[in-house]
């Protein structure tokens, strides 16, 4: 469990980061909290001759909340999200989800940026950000780009971010309505067997809008538009929820692992989504 030798960089600004990335191309990687990258390097599954630590780069740890949007810097830790009262009020699903990620020690180091940028299908934040219709800002040699979370994930560890770009912040339209992040896992610190992020807006007893995303049930997070559509206009009764679950099951593509076989995962995904919808609706 010892990585191959690597050069360690700790630039003070983004220009410094980008110049190292430009110089070394594929041989360089940026690191935020390090919880995904360092184990991969120790297992020698990731070969990173040039490791760029973002800790000293300024301006990446801010949380800004306006009337319409929430902006979270890439280096904001999960602990900081849990600890931020304004954020808990503006988008309570962020705290509910963050509390279900790993354990306090991991959350002190784990960051929003690292969690969403790595493209690990087990991570909780990508699905959450798809549910919230977040936009990721990435910066590269040619300047900034903004990529919707719902278009960011291509395959496991493959995203719309270029290797020489750095994800700097996440912007979320301020959510309204009820919310729930429901996750089944084997133990503290585990990735989800199945997890569901749900936001629902209720108007006059029926569902005005909804967003649903599922985690660790495909090689990318799954934003299930059809599941949400099944709820819109309904009173979120049993039939509507069942329809949403059926739609979601058509979108996911789980694989067997130590958490269980495909049939089990699909079943649990349905149960978890039902619970998430019911809780979100009760809060809407």
């Amino acid at each position: 469990m010892i990585p191959a030798a690597f050069e360690y960089y700790r630039p003070k600004d983004m220009a410094g980061v980008l110049s190292i990335l430009e110089e070394h191309g594929d041989d360089a990687r940026v690191m935020a909290g390090g919880h995904s990258l360092i184990p991969m390097m120790k297992l020698r599954m990731a070969d990173v001759p040039h490791l760029i630590d973002l800790q000293d780069v300024g301006g990446l740890s801010d949380i800004e909340i306006s009337n319409d949007t929430i902006s979270i810097g890439a280096m904001v830790t999960q602990h900081a999200i849990i600890d931020h009262d304004g954020l808990a009020e503006a988008a309570p699903i962020l705290r509910e989800a963050s509390l279900q990620i790993a354990d306090p020690q991991v959350r002190y180091m784990g960051t929003v940026g690292g969690n969403v940028a790595n493209g690990d299908p087990g991570n909780d934040m990508p699905g959450l950000m798809q549910c919230l219709d977040a936009t990721f800002t990435v910066v590269g040699a040619d300047g900034e780009r903004r990529i919707p979370a719902r278009e960011f994930y291509e395959a496991a560890y493959m995203t719309a971010r270029d290797d020489e770009e750095v994800l700097t912040s996440v912007t979320i339209p301020r959510p309204s309505g009820g919310y729930a992040y429901e996750k089944q896992k084997r133990k503290i610190g585990d990735y989800a067997t199945a997890a569901a992020a749900v936001q629902i807006v209720k108007e006059g007893g029926s569902c005005a809008s909804a967003a649903i995303a599922m985690t660790n049930l495909s090689d990318t997070p799954i934003y299930s538009q059809s599941a949400a559509a099944a709820l819109v206009g309904s009173s979120v009764d049993d039939a509507a929820i069942s329809a949403a679950i059926d739609a979601m099951l058509g979108d996911i593509d789980p694989t067997e692992d130590n958490r269980g076989p495909v049939a089990f995962k699909k079943h649990v995904a349905g149960v978890i989504l039902r619970r998430a919808i019911e809780r979100a609706w009760s809060r809407a």
């Binding site: 089944q184 958490r259 089990f264």
Partner: peptide, 11 residues
Amino acid sequence: HDHWRIWKTAN
């Protein structure tokens, strides 16, 4: 008796 094996029993 992890989650999926219990689920399998119930199933």
